[in-house]
Computed example of a mutant assay.
Amino acid sequence: GLSVGAGDRTDCQIYWSQTDGELRYVIRLEHTTTRPFQDAQLRCVPEGFILVRGSTSEIRGERSLAYRRGEDASFTLMQTQGEDLVGSKGTACQGSEVEVNGRLGLLVEEETDSTEKDLLWTDGPYIFALHGKGLSAEELLEIARNVTW
């Protein structure tokens, strides 16, 4: 697992394991916040992508933004506050630690010919999950670096 935080104070824990091609993860924020929910925004959207869906539920502390470029490339950004993020990838995939704006995260890439990738990280009181199709790992990281709230 990864511990992310400043000084002696841990902001979140990212636990992940990989066995026989299956990757499982749990991202847990260590502190609750009383701040009002603030919508994530993208400072810069990659060329050719258009917003096809966006929604926010302040009550549930969630935001979703979906972008598409033609038929072959898309990405969805999920922002959550206050609840653990739990998931798994049942196909042959590889997990690796990455950095997003000075914070550690988890990049999950399928090992087959699939072009799907997931990038998970935290920032302040939020957990972010970015799912991309038809994008390289570097393109996904660049999108994540442009997330603000």
Rank of each mutant, 00 (worst) to 15 (best):
G1N: 15
L2Q: 14
L2H: 09
S3H: 15
S3N: 15
V4N: 07
G5R: 11
C12I: 03
W16S: 14
W16V: 10
Q18F: 03
T19S: 14
G21N: 06
E22L: 10
L23R: 03
V26Q: 14
L29H: 14
H31F: 14
T34Q: 06
T34H: 05
T34N: 08
D39H: 01
Q41C: 07
Q41L: 09
C44S: 15
V45W: 07
P46Y: 13
F49C: 03
I50R: 04
L51R: 01
R53C: 00
S55T: 09
S55M: 12
S57W: 05
E58H: 04
E58L: 00
R60F: 12
G61T: 05
A66C: 10
R68I: 02
R69L: 09
R69N: 12
A73S: 11
S74W: 00
S74R: 04
F75T: 11
T76I: 08
L77Y: 08
M78T: 08
M78F: 11
T80Y: 01
Q81C: 05
G82P: 02
E83M: 10
E83K: 14
S88N: 09
S88W: 03
K89L: 12
A92H: 12
Q94I: 11
G95P: 13
E97S: 13
E97W: 06
V98Y: 11
V98F: 12
N101A: 05
R103V: 00
R103F: 01
L104A: 01
G105S: 04
G105A: 00
L106T: 01
L107S: 11
V108D: 04
E109I: 06
E111N: 10
T115F: 02
L120Y: 13
W121Y: 15
T122I: 08
G124M: 05
L130P: 02
G132I: 05
G132D: 14
K133E: 15
K133A: 08
G134D: 02
G134S: 02
L135K: 00
E138Y: 12
L141C: 14
A144K: 11
A144W: 10
A144E: 07
R145S: 09
W149Y: 11
